[in-house]
Design a protein around this nucleic acid. Structure first.
Lengths: 225, 225
DNA sequence: CATCATTTTAAGCAATTTTTAAGCTTTCCC
DNA sequence: GGGAAAGCTTAAAAATTGCTTAAAATGATG
């Protein structure tokens, strides 16, 4: 899951990036509104976290421009302000939620999960067939027995399942799971697909990851055509 | 909708103008190529109808100059000629469609409508009849069942559908899908058309790719003549 | 600092896609 | 109807892509 943080205070930005990367998000940072808007329009993020007070272009203006471009990405506002008018103003500009500074990291995480969950109209746990994964505890179950995955393995599987029944292209996987944005001839994806397939197969999930040659991979929900 | 007719025979020009104005088009007429080109460059038309044989500047030259100026306005050629070379020549010069004289007014009207409709198609998913393709996920559906295509097959189908109801010449296909810009006597296109037809037929889409002998191929939206 | 788990790189092999080439069929014009 | 040109089909060669494995790099932990 790929996030963009638009925040001018390096301390807060760095703290957020570290904390979110520990939760296996791919995180980009922009230190002013203009850069942030450019990044948000060029790349495809799963969530934007925008500070209200930032240089070059206000957070609210960034949000408005993103919406104007027809981009429905969830937006979470970070704000010191808390008067009702300001909140209304922000939500009218197209924000999905806001959180007041100072905030608990746990609360931020919870609100991020809410937004990402809304995206797929699912509850907290994601599933595909017999497979069940929990993004909060980072656990994976095949029926009743747990599959132990490394962080990268988990991130890849989570991305595939969040986008189940859709083809995930190699470039999108490398962007959203590895946060690599330039062309490269790495073969990490192949290797991790092999790792995942081996563990899933051993746990009795069968081979649910299908290859779309020349394009990418897909996990299909069985029985739903 | 504003049209420009470039046609030297006053009889035909007048007949077209009257008929099209009855259909609520705004119609300008130029009686020679030079005047027509000036008008086309100065004003903003939604469609140009150009006769092949006109004084001062040939129709094909007008078309080429318009394209050279970066103007993407749809161009419909009126031609008495119907040898293959001439049609190829015209389409390569940037024309979108052609109609042979003598023609039925109804047919001309239908072709005009096709061009104007194509103009405002900004939708993310492309379709032709029962067929639906998604350029983002590289998936193709015939109704509800998916058709698995290789990358080149997909690229070819996408190009044909993006240009549906327009003739796609072999040279344009080889340029846009294969990125080959020099003449070559390859027969890859034939082979891939065969591949595509076989897969589409098997999926129940019928034979929607029509051959225009000596020119290229076209996918027509059913229900539009 | 040494150890262990995780991640990345690289290389050989296998499978699929793409291209080439040849023979066959259809269409068009004389 | 006959010949030529254009398109269709098929099979096999060439090129590309993906899979797998092992080993090297990285990072975390005591």
């Amino acid at each position: 899951m790929r996030l963009l943080i638009i925040e001018d205070e390096p301390g807060i930005a760095g703290f957020l990036k570290d904390g979110l990367e520990e939760e296996y998000f791919a995180v980009d940072i922009a230190y002013d509104g203009k850069t942030g808007l450019d990044l948000a329009l060029i790349n495809e993020y799963d969530l934007l976290i925008i500070d209200w007070m930032i240089p070059a272009l206000s957070g609210i203006e960034v949000c408005r421009q993103v919406r104007k471009a027809g981009n429905p990405v969830p937006v979470l506002f970070l704000t010191a302000k808390d008067t009702l008018e300001d909140v209304v103003f922000g939500l009218d500009a197209g924000a999905n939620d806001y959180i007041k500074k100072p905030f608990e990291f746990e609360e931020l995480l919870a609100r991020i999960r809410v937004q990402l969950r809304n995206k797929n109209q699912n509850d907290d746990s994601l599933s595909a067939g017999i497979l069940n994964i929990n993004p909060v505890t980072h656990q994976v179950f095949c029926g009743s027995n747990e599959i132990i995955l490394t962080p990268k393995e988990f991130a890849l599987l989570e991305y595939l399942i969040r986008n189940k029944d859709r083809v995930c292209t190699r470039s999108r996987i490398i962007e959203h799971v590895w946060d690599i944005h330039f062309d490269s001839d790495t073969s990490v994806i192949d290797v991790y697909i092999t790792f995942l397939r081996r563990k899933l197969e051993a746990a009795g999930a069968g081979n649910i990851i299908q290859t779309i040659r020349g394009v990418g991979y897909i996990i299909r929900e069985p029985g739903v055509s």
